[in-house]
Amino acid sequence: MTNRGAGGVDRGIEDQWAGLPAGIRTQVDGYVLQDRFLQAVKLVWDAGRARGTGLHEAQQIVHLRYEHLGDRVARTPDSPLDLDSLAALAHGVPGRVVAIEAVWDGDTVHDWFVHLLALADEPASQKCLATIYWGTAVRVLDGADTGDRHPSAAAATRAGTALAEHLGVPFHFASPDTPDDGAPACAPDRRPGGSGRRELGHPVHRHHHADPVRQCGPVDAMARIPVNSSPLRWFKSSYSGSEGDDCVEVAARADVVHVRDSKVTAGPELAVAAASWGAFPAGVTARPDAPRPGYRG
């Protein structure tokens, strides 16, 4: 006796989706079609909680809706990694490009990924030329053997080396073999904020697993809160996407930590009790067997 339906899908997850009101299902699919993952998960969780739908189950349901809607989803476009595109972006950097650098970053949505930066002087500045997520790298590498190296690192090394040679400048990647957002930077004083460190002292990601967890911590640590209930000071990764708007933002207070999608700042927020915040990142990464969402990267 199996609890798997067509395509190996857990019937319990299918039943939880079917049990949601038609209006909720329509709204969830609308969020998915707009690639608004967090909003879709929160809606499923809010509407299904009384029927026993937990946060992990809500994410599985939304993951299945992404698979079902497939190419209809307005996915975030990949950063171009061809030499002509990268060179055009590098030539648009104010000042003189003096180096190309690859740096690790990560979040609870994408796991580990790599930013390809152009560092310039006169004036001193930097420009993120590309953000290379796992899926982006796999598509660009097109089956090329990367050995034990993370695909994002392999794609960044290939693209960064070619661009640096084209520009006649050095290429720097401090930790190509091991994801490490604390690896020595080529020019940390040129990073946003001046220190080269995250504005948050406790990054929410960890060393790479092939299928990272997408479960957002213990359910009893969460609470529904009104949108924009009071002024908050929001923080996110210093290297959050090529345009700085593709990440998760966090605002901390004495009693609660707020989390929201940086692309939809007026949208729903999650609140985690401050006492549970330390366990929250562990909950995000505690289930390497959880399905990898198909919505990005």
Rank of each mutant, 00 (worst) to 15 (best):
L83C: 08
A271S: 11
Q60A: 02
V103S: 11
L163P: 09
V256I: 14
R51F: 00
A6H: 11
K263D: 01
S125T: 15
R25V: 09
F171Y: 15
P231E: 03
W277Y: 15
P176Q: 11
C247E: 14
E199K: 11
C247G: 11
L270T: 05
D148M: 08
I100F: 03
A274S: 15
L163M: 07
R296C: 14
I24V: 15
W234P: 09
F235L: 09
D142T: 01
A118G: 11
T76A: 04
W17T: 02
V114T: 03
R75T: 07
W234T: 10
L141E: 10
G267S: 10
G201L: 01
P203S: 03
I61C: 02
R198Q: 13
Y239T: 10
R11K: 14
A159C: 04
N3T: 06
R51S: 14
P179Q: 05
A279F: 08
L38F: 12
G201M: 01
G95D: 01
G182V: 09
F37A: 13
S240T: 01
P218T: 09
A223V: 08
I225S: 00
T157C: 03
L55H: 12
D84G: 10
V103Y: 04
A183I: 15
V103G: 03
S85H: 07
R75K: 14
G23S: 14
V103I: 14
A275P: 00
T157I: 08
V169R: 06
V32Q: 05
G70A: 15
R224I: 12
D142Q: 05
G160M: 07
F280G: 00
R49S: 09
Q34K: 06
S276I: 01
H207W: 07
R190G: 12
R190F: 01
P21E: 13
P268D: 02
E14M: 10
A130P: 05
K236V: 08
T265M: 08
F171I: 07
T108R: 12
T161P: 04
C186G: 09
L117Y: 07
P212H: 01
D29C: 05
I61Q: 06
G52H: 05
E122Y: 02
Y295I: 11
G297Y: 10
A88T: 14
E122M: 05
Q39N: 13
R96G: 08
V9H: 12
A22G: 13
G135L: 00
A90C: 13
H207F: 03
G196V: 08
A22I: 06
S229E: 05
E14R: 11
G106F: 01
A252H: 04
E243V: 14
R224W: 08
C186P: 04
P192S: 02
Y239G: 08
V41M: 13
W134Y: 15
A120F: 07
E67N: 09
V256W: 12
D35A: 11
T76G: 02
P77K: 00
P293L: 12
L232Q: 10
D105Y: 01
Q60H: 03
G5V: 00
F173D: 11
T131M: 12
S125K: 08
A87M: 04
T265E: 09
A18R: 15
V103W: 02
F113T: 02
G244S: 12
M1V: 13
R260G: 06
E165C: 03
V213I: 09
A279W: 11
M1D: 11
A137Y: 05
A251T: 07
R260I: 00
H209N: 05
R72D: 14
R296M: 13
D255F: 01
V28T: 15
P281A: 12
V169D: 11
L117F: 12
D29G: 03
